[in-house]
Amino acid sequence: MSHGDGKISGSAWVYGDNVDTDVIIPARYLTTSDPARLAPHCMEDIDASFASSVRPGDVIVAGANFGCGSSREHAPIAIKASGVSCVIAPSYARIFYRNAINIGLPILECAEVSSPGAVSRGDALEVDIAGGSIKNLTNGREFTASPAPEFMSELLDAGGLVPYVRRRLGCAG
């Protein structure tokens, strides 16, 4: 859930290294980009319980190179539509990183979260997305995410890429 102060809290869904976009949302569902139709299939090939059990505010905690593979923007769209409030991983594949920023899915870079014992499935997390602080309320450990690159913050401040282009094209709103 969101606390309205930039902090979110939710349960952790923990995955390993190299979670690829084919398992985040398999190609057989790519005949649509409707978030509501993608969400029920999110992660289904590596975690059949995810889509039916994830709750709004929950957090995906993963290993390195999250989102590798295809350029499908359907992947961050499916994650966001499933209710996940943010993803935390040591590193992201570059296309996924751009796509997540562009559609407004917060992603935090943090090396420690994937170390053994840092976060287990179901742990209660509290995350300050803007400040980058991550608290594991279950085991009491705290982590700090790397700050977002300056240009990314600017893009996020503009409301994402769509409003940025609208402004460049001289469109209202």
């Binding site: 796509n99 559609i103 994402g160 890429l161 769509v162």
Partner: peptide, 24 residues
């Protein structure tokens, strides 16, 4: 499409992006 990097074979900087970046 992520395999846009194929054009590197011609000394072109091809790179894949998502649909929002492409629309921009």
């Amino acid at each position: 499409d992520s395999h846009t990097c194929t054009y590197g074979a011609l000394g072109a900087l091809g790179t894949g992006m998502g649909q929002t970046d492409l629309a921009a």
